[in-house]
Amino acid sequence: MTERRAKLVASVTGLHFAALQLGAFLSVESVSSSAWATYAALSSAWLGGTLAGLWLTLPARPAILGGLLAFEGLLVFARLAPWSRGLFVFGVAAVAVGGLWAGGFFVRAARRRATDGVFLHENNGFLLGLVATPCAFAFGGRTALAALPLATCALIFGLDPTLKQARKETP
């Protein structure tokens, strides 16, 4: 993978993380609670998932797809059972699963000795996601919220050819 492409992958990954994290927050808070405790629990779940992802040896593809699946599952849950008490618990679990790859991604970059600029480019992508996600939600509703991580995930797999060989990789 060229250096330029690696930067692009890091940026799209940052965008993906923002879409997952903010998307989950908006989805839970719209039909559950906007209390500080909800925000703190969801933020802690993301950070906890990231911490776990740093130390677990995660295969890339299942980790990315697992996070995406958990997120889409959360959106479906919120649609089917709004105002349900279980939504908060499901939300915390889904956000934590999404956060796993936020840790795994950086370890993968380190394993490839590609840490130069990885924080910068990932953060730039996250910044873009901070704008894109609320705009998608405001103008496209929960459908756009669900579509955005699907698109970013497809982009990540499209841009990073090494992910297709991930199964063959030794951790």
């Binding site: 703190a40 933020s43 802690s44 950070l47 990231t50 911490l51 740093l54 840790g103 380190a110 840490t115």
Partner: peptide, 21 residues
């Protein structure tokens, strides 16, 4: 070792951020 550096350093900062919250 970049992997050890990433794990230890990023974990410390994230734990600190949680503590700060």
């Amino acid at each position: 070792d970049p992997v050890e550096g990433m794990r230890r350093s990023y974990s410390a900062e994230l734990a600190g951020f949680l503590l700060g919250l």
